[in-house]
Amino acid sequence: MISRRAINSMGILAGIVFALSMQTADAHRIVVAARHIAAAPGGLDDPVWGTLPVVPIPVKGRNESANDDETVWTTAAYTDETLYFLFRWKDPTLSVIKQSWYFDGSAWHHLEGNEDRIALLFEITRITNFATRGCAVTCHSPVDLPRERWKLATRTEREKGDLWHWKAARSAPHGHADDAWLTVAGNPTGSYRETGRRKDKGSGGDIKNQTGDKSGPLYMQDPKRPPSAPGFLLLEEAVEIKDYSIFKAGDVIPFRLPRYPSGSRSDVKSVSRHGGGEWLVMLYRKLDTGHDDDTIFNPLKKYNFAIAIFDNSGADHSKATQPLTLEFER
């Protein structure tokens, strides 16, 4: 019906046209390409990570970290069901103190020190100009509003973000990142300023370990159970302190007690390690959790996202990226 010569000619022509018409992403944009892998990585040291491309992502310091730029070495992969990230960044000091209690022999005091963190923000629904400006439109106050009043929020209810917040002292001990989402600013929990950050459905987070008069810890490790995360006190393994005379000078008890998450709040899992002056953190989550407070990752699509890292910080002074693109290689 149609000669072989015609088909060959058209095939060559079509090949040239298709090659030319496949425009790549903006050349100035950092693209993290997740490669498809057959099986889930077994952990931080799984050999599969060595076979995947590593993307250096510059993070620029702001506020107290203004002169402290850093690079987050990022690798991404996905299976048919799950998306995996491996992040590595330099941090000579392990910070997990998070104001732990210290007993000096007569009274309890908070130790100085906070925790290291990494946060990722994706779009659940489109956030206006997030693609071109990244966290500048969400994490930070708009120029027309005082910074004390507004933080980490979107402009309209239609715009929603998906926040993965890994915390070295509060979510890492039970192998998760706190899963939250972003909407317009409000004050649902009575925090000191309005924020758009909301917890995903389910339980999780952490509680403060303090007595009613805030003079000392209320909980300690259950003596009948060995700690599943040595150095931390998980709420599920804590018991109320009945006899404070058992403590001796120099004893330390964590101030923040991570609670094992459930429901949509437990979607983002983590494995992490600090060693050799750097953090190595693996975060992973189902491509589609089925929860409306999470981004649905469709391997056909590209996603805008941004990263921030926090060094020994409990506030918003951090090092953040420009907007990034996550794409799925097929």
């Binding site: 298709f18 030319l20 903006d26 100035h28 100009n129 400006r133």
Partner: peptide, 24 residues
């Protein structure tokens, strides 16, 4: 199916740093 048609970032009329590349 294998190479979906490109859909870039949403237009940001204030982002004049974007330089479009001419098509073939």
């Amino acid at each position: 199916w294998y190479w979906p048609a490109p859909l870039g970032d949403p237009a940001d009329p204030t982002d004049s740093s974007y330089v479009p590349k001419p098509e073939w």
